[in-house]
Amino acid sequence: MTKYLLRLYITGNSIRSQRAIANLFRICREELSDQYKVEIIDVLEQPHLAEAEKILVTPTLIKQLPPPLQRLIGDLSNKDKVLLGLDMILKDKKKIKEP
């Protein structure tokens, strides 16, 4: 089951895009175990999707699910901020309690 639906908007094959993808997958693996689905959208190939979401900068990460919708910009190199932006801090704490 996928609990998190994340969309990452990037521009082509740039270093910044690569870095954002790598950072996102690393954070997801570390924090969300299997409960996530990531869609990567290249705005150079699908500019109409960027238009529809009114994406201004890349990389932009949108947390589609669970609500509320959250937007995060940057190459996701600051993990704490990513977690804060995606409201994952709570889960993080739970995780610590669990064992």
Binding site: S14, R16, Q70, L72, V82
Partner: peptide, 12 residues
């Protein structure tokens, strides 16, 4: 939106 790391106006 929250900022984490570098970005550019590529999408625009």
């Amino acid at each position: 939106p929250m900022v984490s790391g570098d970005y550019d106006l590529g999408a625009l």
